[in-house]
Design a protein around this nucleic acid. Structure first.
Lengths: 216, 216, 216, 216
DNA sequence: CATGAATGAGCATTCATTCAT
DNA sequence: CATGAATGAATGCTCATTCAT
């Protein structure tokens, strides 16, 4: 479940002969897109920020949109990576893992990931509503991999009587929107006000636990 | 707690001598901004959609940004309006109002409002991260009016022992992100997949109720 | 040789039913044109400055260019008016009038006029190079009236041996460019530096006198 | 005191990698600005005249105003260049140089320059009244360099008894306005009528000489 | 007579993209 | 592989002018 490797390297790893300039372009694009939005960022701005010529961007990325997708596709897979990993199944084997332990582990892990890659996540959230193709990539990954896996896990805990007997799909949805809803409120909608992250995350976990606890 | 009047009229009601063209511009702008985003929508596009000359837009709205703010400011106040209304306090007087009844009433009311004004809400959510001034309007209204009022109500139910003894602020936050998180997931991130709105909303209410229920 | 009446009234006197608004438009146009130039001044700016609606300007002046011409035509005739006046001939009759007296009288009179109407004169000088029709009006008035008259006068003084025996035309030209050259340098090219008007004008007169004095 | 080199090259010489297109833009801008005035000339007009795309103008000159200043700054320095040159002082050493010889040399030289660069000079004169920054450049160069030098020279001739004992500053002003006054009248105000340039310039020199001659 | 909403051509400027070097 | 000059369509906005009220 680790994300040791830098996402920037990950973004670039599919491409061969990655030059220093390319890294700078990616870094500059992430910064610019997250600050001003994709549509409001010009390629010349990115070029300047990256310290490369305008043409250099288009040597590596056919269009501005291509640059966006090249950034976000890895973000999507990284975002859901740990849940998809094979060893994630161990959770189910290990009898001693309670739902609470599981939830804590996942939340902690994904929160850290989001905090480390907040710019990229912001771009993803911002652009998803406007790009059908992006949404398709996203749904594809989520639907086929994440939900299936999480549903299994939820079923597992439901059977064990640790969580409420509602459709796993709904349980997953409620948990996820609680977590991401926090992130969106905190980083996108109200970034200017003070947040006690640790306390809020702990309360969110408690909230999910109680919300999904079986009726006594 | 009603929103009978159309928000389009509400947007225009501060201005005098509202012409037919103005209404068309507002309607076209809402449609265009919500479909393509503010930055990716051109004023000529809005003009065409509204069936007016491009210059006409700028006669009524000094800049494109001004048009955005003129759209969203009323949206913000409408969004929080029922919570701010005087008769909202009656909730507290009425002994027979349980927290559940209160929550249901609010959720139902605000959900209906969002569903009726989903385009405007989408614009608001999309643009808030990129416009400091918009965020200031939002924070100002939320902080000064909504949170204060909701905190009082939460305190009331906390005293009555109907909800968990956590900071009212956090309780409010958890409830709100659950509700809006649902809306964002459903309309912005994954609008293409099927959602059973009624069931999901009911489960969200149950989830909040359980999540905030006092520990037995 | 007096210009008692206000040039603003003079500009308007050809038109009938002159309204208060019209006066304001003229005054606003003079101010705006002289500050920013004709091409760089918008009609809406003039309307705002005059406190009238945009349409009102076009009720009185068919086009922006028309407004300019309606301003400048009277300026041209006023500028040359005293020289054209019938009683200007008295100069010639009055034996006791020396060339110096004559020059002093004309310079003093025209300088005062320019100082009182510097904005209009500035507009005239600025726009003449770009408007053929304006130049035609100007040449027409100058050529047919002023030069003819001044040539007569110069001839008169030449015969009296008070000035140099060069073509009257050239003598007139030299005197006029000295005077207007001073005005242009002082008001248009270098308005920001300090000028001792009285001393400079006196020296200019002396300069012209000496420059045109017959060789002893 | 020579201006052999083309001013167009001089305008461009500060910039490196001057392309053919840039030269065309400059030439087109000079032509267009002098014909219609800065404000009344559109960048698309310049582009068309230069045979380049409109965007090309803005690659080399940030704004239209920038283009104007890039044109006029060299004009200002070129205009005053010979007077600033070191070998200009030789005038003072050469005992045999009379004031008349000096005046003739300067007038001839500057007249030729103006005639060769009449378009640029016209632009300078036209735009100076409307651009504070342009005026500052002008004053700066004139005040610090030209007037100082010319005053010295005037003092020199005053001491030699060749010219009138009036403030050198005024003497300089009278001579300059006579010369430029001629140019403005001839090229800007009355370009349509016939002028015998050679004769007028000779008379202007005689006029200045007589006007500044010491009283016998 | 005066208004100001409406127009659509035109404006200066920016854009993503191409391509010769 | 990288450059940056060049492009021309598109952008947000202003313009002079018209006309119904």
């Amino acid at each position: 479940m680790s994300d040791q490797e830098n996402i920037l390297d990950f973004i670039l790893k599919d491409e061969d002969n990655v030059t220093e300039k390319q890294k700078k372009i990616i870094a500059a694009a992430i910064e610019a897109f997250s600050e001003k939005g994709f549509a409001a960022t010009s390629t010349s701005e990115i070029a300047k920020k990256a310290g490369v010529a305008e043409g250099t961007i288009f040597r590596h990325y056919k269009t501005k949109k291509d640059l966006l997708l090249k950034l976000l596709s890895p973000m999507v897979s990284k975002l859901i990576a740990p849940i998809v990993l094979k060893d994630f199944n161990k959770v189910l084997d290990a009898e001693h893992h309670s739902f609470e332990e599981f939830l804590r582990a996942v939340v902690k892990n994904r929160m850290e990931f989001l905090q480390k890659n907040d710019a990229l996540f912001k771009i993803l959230i911002q652009e998803i509503p406007f790009h059908q193709d992006l949404r398709e990539i996203f749904i594809d990954q989520i639907a086929s991999k994440v939900f299936k896996r999480l549903n299994e896990i939820m079923d597992f805990y439901k059977e064990k009587g640790e969580i409420l007997d509602i459709p796993s799909m709904s349980a997953v949805r409620l948990a996820i929107t609680s977590i991401f809803g926090y992130f969106i409120a905190r980083h996108l909608i109200l970034p200017d006000i003070h947040w006690d992250d640790e306390a809020e995350i702990e309360r969110t976990i408690q909230f999910i636990l109680a919300g999904l606890a079986p009726k006594s």
